[in-house]
Amino acid sequence: MAELDIVSPPSSPAALSPKRILVILGEPHRVVLALLGLSGLVMAIHLMDWAWLPQYLPKLGDGLLMTLMMLVASVIVGFLLALPLGLVQVGGIWPLRWLATAFCTAVRGTPLLLQMWLLYYGLGAVFAQFPEIRGSWAWDYLRQAWPYGFLALTISFAAYEGEVMRGAFAGVPRGELEAAEAFGMSRWQIFRRVWFPRAVHRALPTLAGEIILQLKSTPLVATIAVTDLYAVITQVRQATYLTYEPLLFLVAVYLCLSGLLILALRWLENRVPTGQ
């Protein structure tokens, strides 16, 4: 089953030149809506309590950094894991194929929050039982929360992207592989020169959507005491008893993050020639 495509634009509109943007924004009802939104923003700034913001700004910065690090690290490592996961599901021997399929199904069929708690509380409790682990150098890391958050995010990304890669490997036209064979390439050469690059190429357009989904998963690490942006906002809410302001601030930050990410990924996508 294909994952829901939620970020790619419905139909790629003509390139947004500054002039076109002006035309789009210049329609009368949009001007009115924009003015309404703006006045709402001004009212929010004046009527709501933002006194906590300067005091927490450095902490929020650290939290944002943690969120971004979690995102980037889990996407990179998860993608590297997704390649073999996708590959063995298409061309592997049956025990490997079976294992990879079971892994992807199990991870995609259970909530990420549960996986995170399973790793943090479950594995954490198991590790704590072994004096050998407690005495080793690794304990410094295993005691902390972020490795578990990172692991859970990575596993999740690997499973979802592994499914995408499976489709990508399976979708490379047979003719291309046969052509490579006809040229006398060895199996490894075919993989390295044709199959692998073509599969990654086919998977790229969905990567942007998966990365946005991954950004939206990162605040879950706050539930296992990793201080990301969401956790800092939770601290603010507990310290100030404010309901609306910190949450609205968080929504605004995530809107900006998603927007910037979408723009950056689109720019990146346009640099990769699609050959069509």
Partner: peptide, 25 residues
């Protein structure tokens, strides 16, 4: 336009944050 804003906000903001926002607010 209003519906576009609704879908855009929901798709760009983490579910956890939305749930907190809708639940409390």
């Amino acid at each position: 336009d209003l519906l576009e804003i609704y879908t855009m906000v929901i798709r760009a903001v983490p579910e956890l944050v939305l749930i907190l926002l809708f639940y409390y607010v």
